[in-house]
Design a protein around this nucleic acid. Structure first.
Length: 345
DNA sequence: GAAGCGTGGAA
DNA sequence: TTTCCAAGCTT
């Protein structure tokens, strides 16, 4: 009787698993559900390299879900700054409070799925990795590996039901968490988007796409639409070595994050709103930034008048601590532009 | 089902 | 420089 796909993959994982900060060694007791959940949320659409320092910082600052639940929301949002997709941070706060109130994480996929920020993938991953439950874990790696393994030629996303069904057939009863992580390691290191290193693959004898000669053609994806460009302005208003920062609304672009005031480019397309304070302005330059669905050229205007008194809510933040304000990358670029221009004057 | 939602690295 | 992409979720 020949070894199954999951047998081969688990054997490969036992000797080739990547050592990652949130991971226990293969076959070892399940890791802390808090660390599994935190890492899975951070890893949504985000690379291992980008997540690692954030995971270290979060677990050092807040070692338990109770500690995270007790933290001021602003501190958590600021700690997330730079990692992107800030709705994850908003849901992280909500989820931590719910879990702490319940006395811990639920241990079933169905209950986990009800928590904010846990979709089909994350609920299955936490159930399998942290609680040893059999769950069918499908992320972008699994979609690619399974599309190739079964030669599924229907384009994504229509092929998702077929991919999930195929993944179900190879998911083992035992070690489903290791199996899921092994599939993701395989997708990250062997069966990648731009390469298929079939000679190194433990599943090469089982792979239909390899047998048919075109693993790199799978999975088939629809072409992406071109990204539009927008323009806007951000305002740097300084008084007594402090800069005026605002809190963005809790939903939408960069929601809930500290920011420089701007002219409404994120809400209205090209910015056209008024400056938050009257007076003279000096153009400090332009920063370019790419978001998921548009690019932005953001002009940065520096207030040139005396004793500004901005209207609306906000806070005066020490300029020399701007890196600690928790600014999303676009506004951090703008701040650095202003400060760099100052040094060369 | 489609659109909105960040960022940085690789090729 | 441009394009693609990475452990997706919510509405």
């Amino acid at each position: 009787m020949s070894a199954t796909v999951s047998d081969k993959l688990l054997a490969w994982y036992d000797s080739h698993a990547r050592a990652l900060p949130w991971r226990s060694t293969p076959g070892a007791p399940a890791p802390d559900p808090y660390r599994v959940w935190l890492s899975e949320v951070m890893l949504q659409q985000t690379t291992v390299a980008a997540v690692a320092p954030y995971f270290e910082k979060f677990t050092r600052t807040w070692p338990t879900v109770e500690a995270l639940a007790a933290a001021p929301d602003d501190d958590v949002m600021a700690a997330w700054a730079g990692l992107g997709y800030y709705s994850r941070a908003r849901n992280l706060v909500k989820c931590a409070k719910e879990v702490a109130a319940q006395g811990g994480f639920p241990d079933t996929e169905a209950e986990l799925r009800k928590l904010p920020g846990l979709g089909a993938y994350t609920a299955a991953a936490v159930a399998a990795i942290a609680f040893g439950k059999r769950a069918v874990v499908v992320d972008a790696n699994v979609e690619r590996v399974v599309s190739r393994l079964f030669a599924i030629r229907e384009p994504l996303p229509a092929s998702r039901p077929a991919i999930r069904a195929a993944t179900d057939t190879i998911t083992p009863e035992r070690r489903a968490g290791d199996f899921a992580q092994a599939m993701m390691d395989l997708g990250a290191t062997i069966c990648t988007a731009r390469d298929a290193r079939c000679l190194l693959c433990p599943l090469n004898a089982d792979c239909r796409a390899r047998a048919e000669g075109d693993p790199l053609e799978l999975p088939v994806k629809a072409k992406k639409k071109a990204k539009p460009s927008r323009t806007g302005t951000a305002f740097w208003i300084e008084r007594e070595d402090r800069v005026w920062l605002v809190k963005r609304p809790g939903t939408g672009m960069l929601g809930g994050m500290r920011a420089l005031p701007d002219d409404g480019w994120s809400a209205r397309g090209d910015g056209e709103g008024d400056a938050p304070v009257s007076g003279a302005w000096r153009a400090a330059g332009v920063v370019r930034h790419g978001f998921t669905h548009f690019d932005i050229e953001l002009g940065v205007a520096v207030h040139a008048g005396d004793d500004p008194s901005p209207h609306g809510e906000g806070e005066w933040w020490p300029v020399d601590a701007i890196d600690d304000a928790g600014l999303p990358t676009l506004f951090l670029k703008a701040a650095r532009l202003v400060l760099a221009g100052r040094e060369t004057e």
